[in-house]
Design a protein around this nucleic acid. Structure first.
Length: 580
DNA sequence: TCCGGAATAT
DNA sequence: GATATTCCGG
């Protein structure tokens, strides 16, 4: 049986003077997951429709009404509201059927009405809308056409049309014939509408989960909170099951990762505009790591995270960067962008003039600090079912970040929190050969960013030569009470003459907050190899992020709306961490 | 009755 | 294979 084309929530007005039929129809329609309003009189129906304009999608009316000829009603509805109307009667006299169709009925049903027929009525609504779109497009009125198309999309977003492409419609028609004798009006063999968890629907789900609290959620509670007509507890339970499975899978992957490799190899592209790297994040049920079991501390953290909305992420991120500390030192970065701390990651950027340029005897170094993207509107991610690829917005340089689930394990027992974003740019005109020059400035910059972060730069010693830039032991290492990261990996983009040093830190870096539990021993990552085999080294970007960074962004972004930058690689990058 | 996990269906 | 529904025991 094909149950691929079921909408729910279709708003149906049923008009029949026979209360028995009215009851039966109502029941059947509700089984189709429609919203049903019943009415025993044609005139009353007309009044209802006039009063509640745009509150109905379709009307089903009996032909024989005592107070008004059903055809008359049909005409009125057609003229005034332009709604699709289905006529029905107990007899199938051809002339009556013809009359109904001539008067504009989109369908004519014979009583007893079959479940199958009722289940298909949404197609009339859909077709009508599509027809209107086409008609207007034909008249070159693009604005109107777009409006209507949007209206159709609106219907889809409401979840009304789950899989309503023409193929499935055709498919349905075929199978309708095959199964015409099943699904009689008693509804005994009726299968439930197959709910497709649209973005909207999932958003509601997530909101409900967040509202309840992840440790207390149950399908029933979620269902109540979601308040979606037609949706059943089973639907929600199923979705919750999947959601949990997804999260635990994520956790497992991350646990495996943290056990294993320290060496990580990220691909990085477009690093030149990495300062425009934007984050996508949203409030998350942040308890993957501990399998939904929370200690008191963690529960609190979770609550905080769950309660926070993307716009309010600063609440969760205790580090505040005083702008006054940033502006004066920054010459090389756009201090206009300095707004507040975003819960993403950080960029350290060392810029150096091309070596083939004339070197001045007195080399200057400009150290800039930049906090990052606090004003970037949060985006949501979604992975829409493959058959319906939505645009995903992997903003700018998201690709330079590691795959969250694969490359960046979450420490078990640690909550995902969102790290501050810091960007530091050191411009070294001429031939700065020793990064130790950077050290004091860098440290100062770090401290100015946040006194809470007690960071030191143990050693910075990246030696540059005209042909090869190699790291020596120790290299760049930040050690911090709070777990400021040290360099973890390096990537060099030949095309851009840029090197990226990736650092990692524990999720709990957030700067002395109670929201997170700090691990007893923070693993200090050492720079594992900097080999910048390019003469024209322009900049070294140090990406500071923490393990939690991606996951809060992506994991809850699960399904959420994600715009797509258009590059498959980007999409795939996040795909792995989406709910799939 | 509700829930979660497993089995089953699409 | 992914995802939704249904079944069933706790």
């Amino acid at each position: 049986m094909d149950a691929t084309a079921f909408p729910y929530g279709l708003r149906v007005l049923v008009v029949d003077d026979d209360p028995t039929w009215l009851k039966i129809l109502e029941k059947m329609l509700r089984k189709c997951s429609y919203e049903v309003t019943t009415c025993g009189l044609a005139r009353v129906a007309l009044e209802i429709l006039r009063e509640r304009r745009n509150k109905f999608d379709i009307v089903i009316s009996d032909v024989n009404m005592p107070d008004m000829d059903g055809f008359k009603l049909l005409e009125h509805i057609g003229l005034e509201m332009d709604l699709p109307v289905i006529m029905m009667s107990i007899d199938g006299e051809t002339s009556r059927v013809m009359k109904g169709v001539q008067h504009g009925a989109c369908d004519y049903l014979l009583k007893p009405v079959r479940m199958k027929e009722l289940r298909n009525i949404w197609q009339h609504v859909y077709r009508k809308k599509m027809h209107e779109v086409k008609e207007i497009e034909g008249h070159d009125n693009f604005d109107d056409a777009q409006m209507l198309r949007n209206a159709c999309e609106g219907l889809e977003e409401r979840g009304l049309f789950m899989r309503a492409d023409s193929d499935t419609m055709r498919k349905r028609k075929d199978t309708d014939k095959d199964h015409a004798d099943q699904d009689l009006s008693d509804g005994t063999t009726v299968k439930k509408a197959r709910v497709v968890w649209s973005v909207d629907l999932h958003q509601k789900f997530v909101n409900a989960v967040n509202q309840i609290g992840f440790d207390k959620v149950g399908p029933k509670k979620i269902l109540d909170l979601m308040n979606v007509p037609g949706l059943t507890r089973e639907n929600v339970a199923s979705h919750l099951q999947k959601y949990r499975l997804y999260l635990s899978r994520l956790q497992k992957q991350n646990e495996e990762r943290i056990m294993g490799a320290t060496r990580q190899d990220f691909s990085h592209k477009g690093s030149s505009d990495n300062l425009n790297l934007r984050s996508s994040f949203q409030e998350q049920p942040s308890n993957v790591a501990n399998g939904y079991q929370h200690g008191p501390q963690k529960v609190q953290a979770q609550v905080n995270m769950l309660d926070s909305h993307s716009e309010d992420m600063k609440v969760v991120v205790p580090i505040q960067v005083p702008e006054k500390n940033i502006t004066p030192v920054s010459d090389a970065t756009d201090s206009q962008n300095v707004t507040s701390v975003s819960p993403l990651g950080g960029v350290l950027s060392f810029e150096r003039m091309p070596v083939n340029q004339d070197r001045k005897p007195s080399e200057t170094m400009i150290l800039g600090c930049q906090s990052w993207s606090g004003n970037v509107p949060p985006k949501q991610f979604m992975q829409y079912p493959k058959h319906n690829h939505e645009r995903c917005d992997l903003l700018g340089d998201y690709s330079c970040l590691p795959k969250p689930d694969l490359e960046h394990p979450i420490a078990p027992g640690h909550l995902y929190t969102t790290p501050p974003v810091m960007s530091m740019t050191c411009s070294m005109e001429g031939g700065v050969r020793d990064f130790s020059d950077v050290k004091p400035g860098l440290l100062g910059c770090m401290k100015s960013l946040s006194p809470a972060l007690n960071c030191t730069v143990d050693s910075v010693s990246v030696q540059l030569s005209d042909s090869v830039v190699k790291s020596t032991d120790g290299d760049l290492k930040f050690s911090s009470v709070e777990g400021l990261p040290s360099i973890k990996d390096c990537y060099f983009d030949h095309t851009k003459n840029q090197a990226t040093l990736l650092t990692s830190e524990e999720a709990s870096i957030i700067g002395g907050t109670d929201l997170v539990c700090l691990p007893d021993d923070l693993p200090g990552y050492q720079l594992q190899g900097v080999s910048l085999e390019n003469i024209g080294l322009n900049s070294i970007d140090l990406f500071q992020y923490n393990d939690a960074m991606i996951l809060p962004g992506l994991q809850n972004n699960w399904y959420d709306d994600l715009e797509y930058s258009g590059e498959t690689t980007d999409y795939q990058l996040i795909d792995g961490c989406l709910f799939a």
